[in-house]
Write a protein that binds this DNA or RNA. Structure first.
Length: 213
DNA sequence: AAAACGGGGGC
DNA sequence: GCCCCAGTTTT
């Protein structure tokens, strides 16, 4: 089971990992594997790796080539293997073997940017973090929720606008909507649940068709 | 701000 | 064959 339908949105492979075992380290590693890689590849790759090693000590003990082989064919598998092993080492040496729970600390890890850090806080620690990827950035601007140039600006703005509860669901719904309907180039506006809805509801001017990625 | 990293799947 | 993908890092 690679995906599950939830109110029209999809649960990502990282969510699936988190649901099975809400271990911040597993969430972190599977998120790193998922970067620019489809769920159908991410989940099996994560499972192969975790079958061999599922904690920082186990990961650092692995040969980098071994990690590469396990997570293939995830994209950027060489870079990811290096980052994963290095991150595990830093977690052991700098953070006492525990995954840090702040954006600033998480982003010190190689291969971990703002989006990954927030997803780990959200899915791994259950904290109210909003992760802004290309989908969320695009949709937020199309809907006129924000007028921002960078994903980081979008993130800061959304933290003020969006509700404080159900952040995990909100993240997934926004992304699922961006994947299936409000796509970058040819949005399926005829299937958009927001188009033509009650006044005051967010709308799309259809002018924001872009290739922000 | 733009390019590089990378393999797989859809059409 | 060409385009796209729940980004991050380096120029």
């Amino acid at each position: 089971m690679l995906r599950k339908e939830v109110g029209g949105a999809t649960l990502s492979s990282v969510s699936e990992i988190a649901r099975r075992s809400p271990d911040p380290f597993l969430v972190l590693i599977s998120t790193m594997i998922s970067l620019r890689t489809k769920d159908e590849v991410t989940l099996p790759a994560s499972e192969r790796l975790f079958a061999v090693a599922d904690d920082p000590t186990g990961i650092v003990a692995l040969d980098e080539g071994k990690i590469q082989k396990l997570i293939y064919p995830a994209g950027f598998y060489r870079t990811k293997a290096r980052s994963i092993k290095k991150a595990a080492g830093i977690i052991i040496e700098q953070y006492g073997g525990r995954v840090p729970n702040s954006v600033d600390e998480l982003t010190t890890l190689p291969g971990v940017g703002r989006k990954t850090a927030n997803l780990v806080l959200n899915l791994g620690f259950g904290l109210p973090a909003i992760c802004v990827d290309t989908h969320v950035h695009r949709i937020s601007n199309r809907f006129g929720w924000v007028t921002t140039k960078t994903p980081e600006q979008t993130e800061l703005a959304l933290e003020v606008i969006l509700p404080r509860h159900h952040w995990i669901e909100i993240n997934e719904l926004l992304v699922g909507y961006g994947q299936k309907i409000c796509t970058p180039l040819s949005p399926r506006c005829s299937e958009c649940p927001f188009l033509g809805s009650v006044s005051g509801a967010p709308h799309c001017d259809r002018a924001g068709v872009d290739r922000s990625r």
